[in-house]
Design a protein around this nucleic acid. Structure first.
Lengths: 229, 229
DNA sequence: CGCAAGTAAATTGTATCCAATTGACTGATG
DNA sequence: CATCAGTCAATTGGATACAATTTACTTGCG
């Protein structure tokens, strides 16, 4: 745990992830190993390892002998990610209604105050804080496995929003975060889940996931794959 | 998808994973990169990438400059994995009660018949089939993201069982699988979840997770970390 | 002018090589 | 005798070099 001095691979991994969710690296953009490598002053080996991890996290896709690209999730994939996120966050709420740790509400309210401090500004800070609220909820369950999965889907949702949403404006989100805290405090899991569903529904709704036509391959996939040999 | 000819890294990855969950590689066992490499006739580079992936899946842990080891989850970690598994499988049931695909019940029943065919034999085949039933349930939701997470926790549970359970005997398990199918068929999610909880509870119970004293570090962690510098 | 084949450049897949860190052994010292 | 410093073997962290594959461009032909 504490004996792990961060390694170069970790550093590159974190930087790339940050760059992706902050939209510095846009979906579909190529990530050639040596380009990234000389940018950070490390060799391809490091970049490769980082890319392998990012692929596992769903932020990057690699095509054999073609290289790595920032993930460009189709609307179908996006819906799958959102669905899993709803499931996981509801599970988090159920657990927290059973066992919220002592310092839990203090930490949550401190976080909401942070969010309120940057209300209105639509910068990367606001986006990051909005995501971290949900990760914090997961952390309070005391279950690192659950926390990791929630982190992953939250990050992927950030990427999805950057692809499909017209605006990241999270004005109402902060209020809803407060409402979720309040509902958990009363121990009413069902009500908390309803608010969470509404909250995530609003987020997903902004992504217009069902409105516009899907990607070419998703459409053509209904016409059979016989030609693919 | 279909254009991905399997790469060497994939092959080694699969082999190692299989070896781990079949207990050929026992928890705590060292996995030196060059030893594994010459065993499979590939270089360290390949093994390294495979180990990175396995670490992400929670089947191996790597200690900085010390190398990789087959994961040896503490009882605490084991409980976390089981908890996430319960959450995810309940989510799967909720989704399936809403939208079971047409061929779903046929595939499930075919699988149960396979399990019944090897009933009694406690070999690796029986263990594998028991796990695959749960992965099949997840697949039927049509959500690949959810399927991947379920697969991961199911595999980790296999590893945990190999560590803590006295016997892998899954005689009753097959019957419970049938009961779960029946409950989903009636659309009664609540009842299906109860059976699933009981089913997983029985599995976890066999692991005696709460009975015996925990690991040393888990105990000592309550005595402060000042000495860790 | 369009299409197919062939070739070259670019990029990944894999192997090998050097450096840095760790753990164990040895020996000295209070 | 226990403890600590110093050295050495073993193994990983990281970089470079080579091979294989893909893509894009060019060229030739109908």
């Amino acid at each position: 745990m504490s004996e792990n001095k961060t390694t170069l691979t970790d550093a590159v991994h974190d930087l790339l992830r940050k760059a992706i969710i902050e939209q510095a690296l846009k979906p579909g953009m190529r990530l050639p190993e040596d380009t990234v490598g000389e940018q950070f002053g490390v060799s391809r080996t490091i970049v490769r390892h980082a890319l392998v991890r990012l692929e596992h996290e769903g932020l990057v896709v690699t095509r054999r002998n073609r290289g790595a690209f920032v993930a460009e999730p189709s609307r179908d994939e996006a819906q799958h990610v959102f669905e899993v996120r709803r499931c996981l966050e509801n599970d988090v709420i159920r657990l927290l209604c059973q066992r919220m740790p002592g310092s839990g509400y203090d930490r949550l309210e401190a976080h909401v105050r942070q969010e309120e401090a940057v209300r209105g500004k639509d910068g990367p800070v606001s986006i990051r804080l909005a995501g971290e609220f949900h990760v914090l909820l997961a952390e309070l369950t005391g279950n690192p496995v659950l926390t990791r999965y929630v982190s992953e889907v939250v990050l992927r949702c950030s990427l999805i929003m950057s692809l499909y949403a017209r605006s990241h404006s999270s004005d109402c989100a902060v209020d809803e975060h407060s409402q979720i805290i309040a509902a958990i405090r009363t121990g009413d899991a069902q009500r908390a889940i309803e608010i969470m569903e509404h909250h995530l529904g609003a987020v997903a709704g902004r992504a217009e996931l069902a409105a516009q036509p899907d990607s070419i391959q998703s459409i053509l996939s209904h016409y059979g794959k016989e030609l693919a040999q």
